[in-house]
């Protein structure tokens, strides 16, 4: 079996005395959409933050493309093709839409390709193109999520890590966001998705991991997991 794109090994993370992750391991293969589901406080966001270097684990390792990235500072990880779309979008409100997108390409030097990439993103998100000179803070919630995802695309990533992309959006927009995530796969990208909306997440993902109290409780094929009695009761509201 070939090396997974992202492999997490025995990750333990502490907040002071509290152990937020208790030695979790999982992997994401190239071309997959993998979802990480679980209740509030289960450790989903902590996992993502540790992968992209915002947090450092006490024990365990993170491998990306076979290379260990556990101790690599967060700002150097983007240029390796691993981008993180954080919870709550975290767009730069005081900058224009266009400047936000440009910041997505901050770590790239290839000017022509950035330009090409920019055109592609603006074509994919016409509403961003219309509002390109507007301050990002004036966008609606849905538009801000588009901006956050478009911004991530401008780093030309191979693996996109998404944290609660559907949070606070209307059902119509939620559908749109999940369509965009599917389109990432069609464009040859790999996705690691953290979602409260487990039903939706499992419907578009290939595999899923269920996180409970900082440990991986279950894992497997998304469709099979969605049939599981425990998962259905706890996360799918059935």
């Amino acid at each position: 079996m070939s090396e997974a794109l992202l492999r997490v090994e025995d990750l333990s993370v502490y907040y002071g005395m509290i152990r937020a992750l208790k030695g979790i391991s999982f992997e994401v293969n190239k071309g997959e959409i993998v979802s990480l589901i679980g209740a509030n406080g289960a450790g989903k966001t902590t996992t993502l933050h540790t992968i992209t270097g915002l947090l450092h684990p006490k024990e365990g390792k993170v491998f990306y493309k076979g290379e260990e990235i556990t101790r690599i500072p967060a700002h150097k990880i983007v240029s390796m093709g691993l981008v993180h779309v954080p919870e709550g979008r975290r767009i730069f409100q005081g900058l224009s839409v266009y400047d936000n997108l440009l910041l997505g390409a901050y770590s790239r030097k290839d000017k022509d390709e950035i330009k090409e990439n920019m055109e592609k993103v603006l074509a994919q998100f016409p509403r961003l193109a219309e509002r390109r000179t507007q301050l990002a803070g004036t966008l609606s919630g849905g538009e801000q999520q588009m901006l956050a995802m478009g911004r991530a695309l401008l780093s030309n990533p191979e693996l996109i890590v998404l944290d609660e992309p559907s949070m606070g959006l209307s059902p119509l927009l939620v559908g749109e966001v999940f369509e965009i995530i599917k389109s990432f796969r069609e464009a040859g990208k790999t996705v690691l998705l953290v979602e409260q909306n487990a039903k939706k997440a499992m419907s578009i993902s290939d595999r899923a991991y269920v996180l409970e109290n900082g440990e991986i409780a279950m894992s497997g094929d998304s469709r099979e997991l969605a049939e599981d009695e425990r998962v259905r009761k706890a996360y799918l509201g059935a």
Binding site: T52, G53, L54, P73, A74, H75, K76, I77, V78, S79, V83, H84, P86, R90, I91, F92, L103, G104, Y106, S107, R151, S155
Partner: peptide
């Protein structure tokens, strides 16, 4: 933090 995630040192 968001700036870090953009690759800004």
């Amino acid at each position: 933090d968001a700036a870090l995630l953009m690759g800004i040192n």
